[in-house]
Design a protein around this nucleic acid. Structure first.
Length: 433
DNA sequence: TCTGGGGTCCTAGGACCC
DNA sequence: TCTGGGGTCCTAGGACCC
């Protein structure tokens, strides 16, 4: 059956990181749980019970320590290996429903339903929700609508209104306005902390009022993106499904150090590790970079915060780990000041060209065979690491003694990806037969 | 003591040219 | 050298997302 217009579903995992932890710790059901960011710094995922205690997104752990203790809030360091694996399980399941899928983030996917023979979208949503829960143990919310913005809004409503049991379809437009009216302006997808007060000052306080703006006025207040947003709220799709394999346009690796440091060698090994991962991602995307840069920060929460950035261009675009490492270390040597206390650092690469279209710079390169040798060396490194595990082969500069590495004091096991960390089953013998 | 990490897109304004 | 308008290209920074 062919529908007249676009139909999008947004499948959104509830409290994703916390839910992943609970799959393997069912005893945590009903208890307040938070997952902390790198360095165990702040809360990045909260269970409903934790939200009810008034723990906001991004709550700094040290400020909430007392509340955590008082209410026995269970805390975890972020275990991205586990979350990534759980995320792939859901994606694989959804891909069996339709190939028209856009993995929007680690916990959200859009599906294009317009070609599927669905007569009752709400029933379809409940069936998918149940399948995901059965197969992965993860609770999701599903919103279905003629535009992505409305699908997003619908899944959010499905999550927040218990009577909807996680699924809301806005395909039948009769009660659309009712739902739009209860969505505060700052909760609309695409309205952030700067636009929300600006819109409120214009008397626009909810999604319904936003949808009633004229395109002209919307453009004036919010630019082209805002004009499209208003159109989307009226059920006319402007943002298509971005399926397929978009290649990244920039790659950034950065970390806050486990402890602040003056030591140049600690910062160098961190930068070398970031450069190595960035280079690997670059190769995996089949691209070469023309530009690489670094930044180093002092602690931004202390007075006298400073950031230094420095960039370099490659005459011949590269994805070679060795070249990127020596590039970023030399940039660092131009910035380093032993009197500074460094808190965080990062490496970024951008300005990419496809690896297949490389043009060797005839004037800059004295050894024309070098590029090919570099490439085959990197291919060998990547295949060894794929076969024997991440970082089996690495550059000496990376030095994984890792004094810079963030703290992860309370990390759960990598249940799904490391054999030795598998959950253990206990067999209980009953005495009375 | 202790506050994450990784992206994309758009726009305003400067540099430069005719 | 100065005047002015108009166009393109590039970049930094703003704003948003998860």
């Amino acid at each position: 059956m062919r529908k007249s217009g676009p139909v999008f579903a947004l499948v959104d995992c509830n409290n994703f990181f916390v839910s992943c932890e609970r799959v393997f710790r069912p005893d945590l059901e009903g208890r307040p749980v938070v997952v902390l960011s790198s360095n165990d710094g702040c809360a990045v995922s909260r269970s409903n019970e934790a939200k009810a205690l008034g723990i906001p997104m991004g709550a700094p752990a040290f400020k909430y320590r007392e509340l955590f203790e008082r209410h026995q809030v269970i805390r975890f360091s972020a275990n991205f290996e586990l979350y990534g694996n759980m995320s792939r399980r859901i994606t694989e399941l959804l891909a069996t429903v339709t190939p028209r899928i856009e993995v929007y983030s680690v916990d959200e996917s859009f599906l294009d339903l317009s070609e599927l023979p669905i007569t009752d979208y709400t029933a379809w949503g409940h069936a998918i929700r149940k399948a995901i829960l059965t197969w992965t143990g993860l609770p999701v919310s599903i919103g279905i609508a003629p535009s992505k913005t409305l699908a997003k809004l619908a899944s959010d409503r499905g999550k927040k209104s218990p009577e909807l049991r996680g699924v809301l379809s806005l395909m039948d437009s009769r009660d659309k306005d009712k739902y739009l009216e209860i969505v505060p302006i700052q909760d609309v997808w695409g309205i952030g902390w700067r636009l929300a007060p600006k819109l409120r000052a214009e008397g626009i306080g909810n999604a319904l009022q936003l949808s009633q703006l004229s395109p002209r006025k919307a453009g004036q207040l919010m630019g082209v993106r805002g004009r499209q947003l208003v159109t989307e709220l009226n059920g006319v799709s402007c943002f298509p499904l971005e399926s397929g394999h978009q290649k990244p346009k920039s790659i950034l690796r950065s970390r806050t150090f486990g402890e602040d440091t003056h030591d140049s060698s600690v910062v160098e090994t961190a930068l070398a590790s970031f450069a190595a991962t960035a280079a690997f991602r670059l190769r995996r995307s089949g691209q070469l970079a023309k530009q690489a840069g670094i930044f180093i920060d002092t602690n931004k929460h202390k007075p006298g915060f400073r950031r230094w950035t420095k960039e370099t261009a490659y005459r011949t675009p590269t994805a070679d780990t060795g070249q990127l490492i020596s590039g970023v270390i030399s940039l660092f040597s131009e910035i380093y000041n032993p009197d500074m206390s460094y808190h965080r650092a990062g490496v970024w690469v951008h300005d990419f060209v496809p690896a297949s279209q490389l043009q060797i710079d005839l004037f800059g390169e004295t050894d024309p065979g070098k590029h090919d040798r570099d490439q085959s060396r990197m291919r060998a490194v990547d295949s060894l690491n794929e076969r024997f595990g991440k970082r089996t082969v690495r550059y000496a500069a990376e030095d994984l003694a890792g004094q810079w590495q963030p703290r992860r004091r309370i990390c759960s096991p990598r249940y799904t990806t490391h054999l030795e960390e598998l959950p253990r089953a206990k067999i209980i013998h009953t005495v009375n037969e």
